[in-house]
Nucleic acid binder design. Structure first.
Length: 469
DNA sequence: CTATGGCACGGATT
DNA sequence: AATCCGTGCCATAG
């Protein structure tokens, strides 16, 4: 299999190769743009719903791994498959985890955290998790793209609970947050104001004549609700003065605060690893999300028609056809590489995936490249810009799988956490040596710095390790 | 005198 | 070829 992949890669014209590479670097979010762009200019490309097994190419009817292929799997082998779904928006991330873990809450410079703080008292523990999930799913405008049912399914919670939490969030400080769009945001904000003629009319307008509202067609609105134009004007003025269709920008104020993208926080994982819920010790399930939902292929109809056509008309079409098939091939190539990569990673780093940082076994990209049979830069690209969701809900960068010192740093953190009296770097180095980890004293100091742990003399009491700097 | 951080070097990694 | 990483040496703060 490996050889086939390698040969096919080599026999491809350089254009193929170049494009495959350029696609490989992209995370799903960027790739999505590319695919959209490509599709808009190329009628030969088609998005289909059918699930096709990436290895045996059977058409599948159910979601989940291909039964034919997974049956031949060995016991406890991880299941790696390409999903036709897009990544379910955001799941959780480290920042929220820390908040939920009841640690010293950071200053709520973050909108989501500030909302969480407001609501913390009203929510049961599992509802808080849900709230964190929802808040991390908001888009740049503060809207929630996913329908509530989707959230419920992703978090395995009851739709009623989701709705309850949603209501709480949308009615908290930047009112209208986590709604599905400007209209809903405005409606929620309206809840806060007492009912009178104006607000009632405003509500009616928002509910039933939103398109008219944006066109400022006062006459038409007045006619529709059988009121005077002046009343409509009043209602619109009220909306304009007291409500904001974009709650997020209201929160940031007019001066748009540059949203500080923490490089350690990821959304929209490109890959998701889950444990089998019925058999936690069984094979891990790895889902590699598609950039767009469905499968991209060359429209077979297009192909058929093109061959019937005469040469002149078909010239442009065949250009499209070539381009389309090239693009599809490159996507497949990309998926294939990702799949092979994940198969090795998940098999060899199972402990790391389940148990945490400490269990990471250092693997270099180069060694992996050799085993898969591709150039090392291919692996570099495949690993770059990808986020991966772990079974415990954390979303980390895929490159973290190649952090040489992660496990050691984790032990150091633990040593410091459990110490009664602060250990010096030298002592820590000695302790590590007893655990068969040999590092120089100087290196311990470096790791300490990376983890933001103060030097021994500075941490007399139990100084909790802060965030990264 | 001891524990650390800065600088810089060589080897590995990308 | 460029970058990252672990380390040794040395100055310095405590």
């Amino acid at each position: 299999m490996l050889q086939i992949q390698d040969q096919s890669l080599r026999t491809l014209p350089t254009a193929h190769l170049a494009q495959t590479m350029s696609l490989l670097v992209l995370g799903n979010a960027e790739l999505r743009e590319r695919v959209m762009q490509e599709m808009s200019g190329n009628p030969a490309l088609e998005l289909v719903d059918e699930r096709v097994c990436p290895s045996c190419h059977r058409i599948l009817k159910h979601n989940g791994p291909c039964p034919a292929c997974s049956r031949s799997r060995q016991e406890n082998e991880p299941i790696v498959f390409l999903s036709p779904r897009e990544s379910s928006r955001n799941i959780r991330n480290d920042a929220f985890e820390e908040f939920l873990a009841d640690q010293e809450p950071a200053a709520p410079e973050n909108l989501a955290l500030s909302v969480l703080e407001q609501l913390a008292a009203d929510l049961k523990p599992d509802e808080r998790k849900l709230a964190a999930y929802i808040l991390s799913s908001l888009d740049d405008n503060g809207f929630l793209q996913d329908p509530p049912v989707y959230i419920a399914r992703a978090t395995r919670s009851a739709p009623a609970v989701v709705q309850h939490v949603l209501d709480l969030i949308s009615h908290s400080d930047p009112a209208g947050l986590a709604t599905s769009g400007p209209r809903e945001a405005l409606l929620v904000q309206l809840d806060i104001y007492p009912e009178n003629k104006t607000t009632i009319l405003a509500r009616q307008i928002l509910q039933d004549a939103f398109d008219l509202l944006s066109r400022r067609d006062n006459d038409c609105i007045a006619k529709k609700f059988d009121t005077s134009v002046s009343a409509v004007r009043k209602a619109l003025a009220f909306i304009h003065d007291n409500l904001t269709p974009y709650p997020m920008s209201a929160y940031w104020g007019s001066g748009r605060t540059p949203s500080t993208p923490d490089p350690n926080v990821f959304h929209n994982p490109d890959i998701l690893i889950t444990r089998n819920p019925v058999d936690p010790d069984g094979p891990l399930i790895v889902e590699i999300f598609a950039a767009v939902s469905g499968w991209l292929r060359v429209n077979p109809l297009f192909k058929k028609v093109q061959s019937k056509n005469n040469q002149e008309t078909s010239e442009e079409w065949s250009r499209h056809l070539d381009r389309a098939s090239l693009f599809v091939k490159c996507l497949q190539q990309r998926n294939n590489t990702m799949r092979q990569l994940m198969e090795i990673l998940v098999r060899e780093q199972r402990k790391f995936i389940i148990a945490g940082d400490r269990e990471l076994i250092p693997i270099t990209r180069a060694s992996l490249a050799e085993r898969i049979g591709v150039h090392e830069s291919t692996i570099s690209r495949a690993v770059a810009n990808k986020a991966i969701g772990l079974p415990d809900g954390r979303i980390i960068s895929l490159s973290r799988f190649f952090d040489r010192s992660l496990s050691i740093r984790d032990r150091i953190k633990e040593i410091v956490r459990n110490e009664n009296k602060p250990f010096t770097d030298e002592q820590i180095a000695a302790l590590l040596k007893t655990e068969k980890i040999q590092v120089a004293r100087r290196t311990v100091a470096k790791y300490r710095a990376i983890e933001g742990i103060l030097p021994a003399r500075m941490r007399h009491k139990r100084a909790v390790a802060g965030m990264r700097g």
